[in-house]
């Protein structure tokens, strides 16, 4: 059943059709929210709230094809509001045990396991460097690189000028790049310029 049909059904009073939309998008929305708030329980709360808000305001959705981007924006906005309000955010991604699990679970059958390990190591450091950025820089980098939002969309969500988005992205990337170089992860993966 197409998404547009499902939305029509919900709008005509068939609330059960909304469950298909939840099943389809909850994983992606979870990922989006978790990248911002970095806390499992808070993420689940926000995901639920986002879907409920989407359900209650479904009649304000202009284009039914745009349900997912619209839902994602609701989730991002709620995440940013909760993050500011709660201040529960701890500047850590996962504890060591989880990191170890993550490290081994993601090994693949690549023909070059050494290269794969190196790439995983690089990802782990990049994630840590992104998460340790000043919050205002971290937000723009997540919204741009992970959520693929345009400069204008980021500016609108964060309520800042487009020029500020541009400069924050530039600064954030410079910081990550410098840290990678200092960490000695440039060889082979990252050429020095």
């Amino acid at each position: 059943m197409s998404e547009i049909v499902l939305i029509d059904k919900v709008l005509n009073g068939d609330a059960s059709a909304f469950e298909f939309l939840i099943l389809k998008y909850q994983k992606n929305i979870y990922g989006t929210v978790f990248n911002i708030v970095k806390e499992d329980e808070l993420t689940k709360d926000i995901v639920q709230e986002s879907f409920l808000k989407a359900y209650e305001n479904l009649n304000s959705l202009r284009s039914r094809e745009q349900f997912y981007p619209w839902l994602k924006k609701i989730a991002i906005n709620l995440s940013l509001i909760k993050l500011d309000r709660n201040k529960r955010y701890v500047d850590m991604y996962r504890d060591d045990k989880e990191e170890d699990d993550f490290f081994f679970n993601n090994q693949t059958d690549e023909s070059n396991p050494e290269q794969e390990l190196l790439t995983e190591e690089l990802r782990r450091y990049v994630r840590k460097f992104v998460d340790s950025l000043p919050e205002k820089l971290r937000r723009v980098i997540i919204l741009r690189e992970v959520e693929d939002l345009s400069y204008e969309e980021i500016a609108s969500i964060l309520n800042i000028p487009v020029g500020t988005v541009r400069s924050r992205l530039f600064n954030a990337r410079q910081i990550i790049k410098d840290r990678l170089l200092r960490q000695g992860l440039a060889d082979g993966l990252y050429r020095v310029s």
Binding site: K27, Y30, G31, V130
Partner: peptide
């Protein structure tokens, strides 16, 4: 680096 955060929930 951030794509693996999509948990099965």
């Amino acid at each position: 680096s951030f794509e693996n955060n999509k948990k099965e929930v």
